[in-house]
Write a protein that binds this DNA or RNA. Structure first.
Lengths: 366, 366
DNA sequence: TTTTTTTATGCAACCGATTGCGGTTTCGAT
DNA sequence: ATCGAAACCGCAATCGGTTGCATAAAAAAA
């Protein structure tokens, strides 16, 4: 690259001034007279000068690039987040380097290591496998801002942007209960993921709050992927006491349940309730439509990018780790209603976290 | 960034050798004795040395980064492509810098300019607005490999990876005709896009081949976005002579048609045929399911990345622009069948390009 | 022992832009 | 005419790693 490009030295030679003068002129340094400045700029344009970003990076010790690590690309929520990140980055003059882990811890480590040298900040959504966080230490040492989103490392210093997982899970479960379902299974991933842990917690809270008998065998932690979701679903559906509703804690799981159910000929809603912790708008297009969440991916991504860039550009080192929680809303559709009511009612359940959290999860009936 | 990191000079000082020796030792240069090499490597590990990528980039005049420009991120096909790109890039030791244009020419220019200085290669899917290609000249001048995919610039030197648009469009239209639809509208974008041009051509070919009367008013070029697709759909549906089938030339258009149709209460298939030039697997989940294409996004992305990296690493300048065409298959589902046949028949139409193109578009009935 | 080769290492330039510091010129003030 | 202060500009170092060339030391040949 940069085969035939002109440098400040070329301009300097052409104008018989020094390279430093050219450099200063191009940056509007006041030491350089107006006429020289103009002369330099004119020549720069004439010679199609483009500053060598690589040299600037080395000198300035920064790249105007933020790294992104996500588990999967083919994933609507991740895409939305990425979209938000890109949008903010673009407006702020940054580029994004995107890597995916395929939910593999090992690949996450490789990505983190390889990005370490060339980004000014890093945005991460942890892989499903990740239980150790040493690969992020480099960033703290080098004072590279680190922002986790969605799946966060609580033990690592760094900003965090998450959803109100516990409250939403509570509301969602509460809704299923109020819809008349008696045996609600939750399909989710490992306890080490904050998302799964919180969602399970909210689920448990609702179950016990409404005096239902908790059944540990209904909490199935097979994983967040499509395949793993299917496995979990098959597992609960082969129990002697089958569940009558499913809480799918991720969009891939929801899709797995949905397609499996269709294959089995079960009618979603009347025969098996389904509610998903998913922002995918596709849920509204399915027939029957699936209860899910509002779309907060873009917001999460832009907030994460914003936090990151702020810390990059703020010279004050006083930036403590901030933990941002996005509220979200439950959008009720046919899949979680036993009777497909033609008349749609709008109501609102209060969030179960009475004092602590005032942003109650709104509930729309569609 | 790179606040407290050790350099080769630190290692050199600790070992009382020169920096060049350290550099060479770390790269296994044969001039350095085995013992010194080992000593250096041991010390490097001990001091947690990581080479400064920025300095290497400047020196080597390359970055091991390939830029990607796509119109939209929230777009299944684009993400499939991106997924393929990332996968190949990762395996080859490259990073990807992802930018999106939001279908804006201006933003495409900005992205191209800003990427020019810091990538070893560039992968581009043109924006819908783009009609001038000057912003890609820099890359040719600097000999930075350029690969277009999906929407390509035919006038610009660079590799191209496309689908067999014309043949697929022919097959798809042919299928609608054979299904018994009489008035087939095609919703698409501007003629300057190779994709639209080829798809329209295939459509026209099929219409005339089967002796139907072509009607220019059925060729609606409102654009490829969801909103534009909806506009186009509303336009044809408000004609005095409505179409009885729609050929949606993109996934966003297909979704627009699908959701509008549902709103109108029209039954897709029996009342209005629909076939989409789209790889989105969601089409299979909808009810009625929508006729579309096989998933070739990953393949397109990995091929594009492969071409790009090959050219980056091949020193022989003899790399002529290669144009790769991916074949694809039509997957027939309920939306393009007037009667929802319970018995599914598998057949195969021959590609209309008899001699020239032997990869006929396979047709599955689902 | 002397000369030639081989082996191993260091010096310094380079990639291109930035910037502290010092030097020269200009010009008004004394 | 002399001095001091702006106003302008260039030298050289720096960022960290790489590499051609020279050199020194060790080994081999004479």
């Amino acid at each position: 690259m940069k085969k035939n490009s002109t440098t400040i030295y070329d301009i300097a030679r052409a104008l018989e001034v020094s390279a430093s003068t050219v450099s200063r002129a191009l940056r509007n340094h006041q030491d350089i007279s107006a006429e020289v400045t103009e002369k330099v700029k004119k020549m720069a344009k004439k010679m199609k000068y483009k500053p060598n970003t690589l040299a600037q990076n080395l000198k300035e010790r920064k790249t105007k690039v933020i790294g992104v690590i996500i588990p999967e690309i083919i994933h609507h929520f991740n895409m939305s987040v990425l979209n938000g990140i890109e949008e903010v980055a673009f407006r702020k003059g940054y580029h994004i380097m995107v890597t995916k882990t395929n939910e593999s811890y090992q690949r996450e480590v490789m990505n983190a290591d390889s990005l370490a040298g060339q980004v000014d900040g890093l945005l991460v959504c942890l892989s499903q496998e990740t239980k150790k966080y040493d690969h992020f230490r480099t960033f703290k040492q080098q004072e590279i801002p680190l922002v986790f989103f969605e799946r966060v490392a609580e033990k690592v210093a760094g900003h965090r942007v998450v959803m109100n997982d516990e409250a939403i899970a509570f509301t969602l479960t509460e809704h299923l209960i109020k819809s008349g379902y008696q045996r609600i299974a939750i399909l989710t991933g490992g306890d080490h993921l904050n998302t799964c842990r919180s969602r399970i917690k909210g689920y448990r809270e609702a179950i016990s709050r409404y005096g239902m008998t908790p059944d540990e065998s209904l909490i199935v932690k097979t994983g967040m992927s499509f395949q793993e979701g299917r496995v979990g679903f098959q597992k609960v559906m082969s129990m002697e006491q089958k569940p009558d509703a499913i809480f799918a804690t991720g969009e891939q799981i929801a899709l797995a349940v949905y397609s499996e159910t269709k294959k089995m000929g079960l009618h979603i809603g009347s025969q098996l309730g389904l509610a998903a912790f998913s922002c995918d708008p596709l849920l509204a297009l399915l027939e029957p439509s699936v209860t899910g969440l509002g779309q907060k991916g873009f917001e999460m991504g832009s907030m994460a990018a914003q936090l990151c860039i702020n810390e990059i550009e703020n010279e004050n080192k006083s930036t403590k780790s901030r933990a941002e929680t996005l509220s979200n809303e439950l959008i009720i559709r046919k899949s979680s209603l036993k009777t497909s009511a033609d008349t749609l009612v709008v109501s609102s359940y209060s969030s179960f976290l009475s004092g602590k959290n005032s942003d109650e999860s709104l509930v729309y009936i569609y």
